[in-house]
Amino acid sequence: MMQIRIIGIIAVIGFFVVACESKSSDKPLPIIGRLEIVDGDTIHHTIPDFEFINQDSQLVTNQELTEYIYISDFFFTSCPSICPIVKKQMLRIYDKYKSNSMVKLVSHTIDPKRDTADKLKRYAADLGVDTGKWVFLTGDKESLLDIADAYFVAAYEDPDAPGGFDHSGKIILVDTKRQVRSFAEGTDPEDVDRFLKDIDKLLHEYDSKS
């Protein structure tokens, strides 16, 4: 009877060890989103064209980002709930890749009425970050809420939510081909630990090509 129990325990431990190992495999990051087949070609989900303005009131389109991998999030400056903790995690990512010229960070406000370019500029200054590296975008509200969809972020106006908007605290990793490659829950520092490894993995794809 005792032996059966011990074998059972070993089997359970064994299962977890194997399950953990298969997770940390060296497979490349997936390309996230729905596949479409057009004329026999597989088309991956990509971030659509956009036109927003940055903290210096300059126009920013996808064009400015094609040579970079970037980390994106959605927020608003008067957000009283999850935004500060997500920003703290974004700041961690910024600090880690500060000197890596391949990486940019792109934060979108979803409250352009209050978050004007000037407001975002002051916000970035208080955050103490270089806006050449970490861009803050504002613009047309509908376009901002629509593009959140393309990043798989839920964002919508809700008078009952704290601050008037409801949104998820996801942090999104996008490659040079506008493809979404990984996510993190920006409210969970441990999930961001894993996400940092994903960023390294994506950067490695470009290392081996050059």
Partner: peptide, 15 residues
């Protein structure tokens, strides 16, 4: 704590 953080470390000068 959601702005000033649970351990009160804040976020840069922002919080």
């Amino acid at each position: 704590s959601s702005c000033h953080m649970p351990e009160a470390g804040g976020v840069a000068k922002l919080y």
